[in-house]
Computed example of a mutant assay.
Amino acid sequence: MTSHVAADLHARFALAQEVARGAGAVALAHFNAREQLVIETKADPQDVVSAADREVEALIRARIATAFSSDSVLGEEYGVSPGASDYTWVVDPIDGTSPFLNGMPTWCVSIAVLRGEEIVIGVIYVPCADETYAAAAGMGATLNGKTLKLDATRTIRNAVTGIGANHHVSPATVASIIEKLLDAGGSFIRNGSGALMLAYVAAGRLVGYYEPYMHAWDCMAGYCLVKEAGGWHHPFPVTGDGLTKGSPVLAAATGAVSDLRQIAGL
């Protein structure tokens, strides 16, 4: 990596962390006054969005535009803003909107950066826990400044796996995944935020995470975190319109990769 490229990466990494925490503070204020939020449904009654999601994404986009006006931005609420540089920011202002609106703490702000086709930055901030997960290519992963390194002895049988589900995937498919995992001696949780469960994989709290269909803004930051902590993730399509469409998402510590790939059929 040239010094120029390294400087570009460091500058964006610093901004991603700063913006995630600032956006998280705004989201937390909404969370603490959530009875006043206007809530809308999207394609499905369980797929909800609030004014907080839109306000937080607008704040993040404004900060990026001020600092790096030539970068592209892809966000869950406002889609793609094309740019001229090699960098693309991928943003989920509040991942886990359902827990957020129902008063549960398992939601987060997720910010990733691509350089070309490579995920080079991943930052996930969890306001209710004041936890900052941060990773950049070649720099490792940290949680509140402490280095994260995955334990290769952890498997689906001696640790917990995260499973995700949404209206894009049939109930029978989800039931089959859970059945296979339990048959193999595993156990699972689902906390309502795929991004946060991926952060938990990087932190060693979960040994792996699988969801049959996720969008880039849900998984990119978590993928960077898991990779930099020494784990593995299934590739996400980033060329053409791949970034704006969903894909299977799987990330795991090395000791769980083969079992979870078999369960997922990946």
Rank of each mutant, 00 (worst) to 15 (best):
S176L: 07
C219Y: 04
A216D: 13
P212E: 05
G222E: 06
V226D: 02
A175N: 08
V174N: 14
I189Q: 08
N191H: 12
T173M: 02
L181W: 03
R205K: 12
A184W: 03
T173V: 03
A216S: 12
A172Y: 05
G230W: 07
L196F: 14
M220S: 15
E179C: 01
H233P: 00
V207E: 13
H234V: 00
C224E: 13
A202F: 07
T173G: 01
G194Q: 11
T173D: 07
H233N: 14
A216W: 04
G194H: 07
G192I: 13
G194I: 07
Y209S: 03
L182C: 11
H233R: 03
E179A: 11
A202P: 10
R190F: 04
S193Y: 09
L181I: 06
Y209M: 08
Y223E: 09
V201F: 06
V174K: 06
V174C: 13
M220R: 08
S187F: 00
V174M: 04
K227M: 13
F188S: 02
G192F: 11
K227N: 14
Y213D: 12
Y210F: 03
G186H: 02
N191E: 14
Y210P: 02
E211P: 01
D218M: 10
C219D: 09
Y200K: 12
C219E: 10
P212Q: 09
D218C: 10
R190K: 10
I178Q: 01
V207L: 10
H215I: 05
A199H: 11
V207R: 09
V201C: 06
E228Q: 15
Y223I: 15
E179S: 14
A203W: 08
K227I: 12
A203S: 10
W232V: 15
H215Q: 15
V174T: 15
A175L: 05
D218S: 13
L182D: 06
G186S: 07
L196T: 04
A203V: 00
E228D: 10
S193W: 10
E179I: 02
Y210I: 04
S187T: 00
H233A: 13
G222M: 04
D218R: 11
A202S: 12
R190D: 05
L206P: 04
G231E: 09
H233G: 05
S176M: 04
L206N: 05
F188D: 00
A202T: 08
L181S: 00
Y213V: 02
H215C: 07
I177G: 00
M214G: 06
L196Y: 14
M220Y: 10
I178M: 02
E228W: 08
H215V: 04
T173H: 08
M197G: 02
G186W: 01
H215M: 09
V226R: 01
L181E: 08
R205P: 00
M214V: 10
G194N: 10
H234N: 14
G230R: 09
A184V: 00
L206A: 02
A184S: 12
P212L: 02
N191F: 11
H234Q: 15
S187R: 01
Y200P: 01
I178T: 03
A216K: 02
L182K: 08
S193M: 09
V201P: 14
G192P: 06
Y223P: 01
A195Y: 03
R190S: 15
L206Q: 04
S187Q: 04
A175D: 11
Y209G: 01
L198V: 01
P171Q: 00
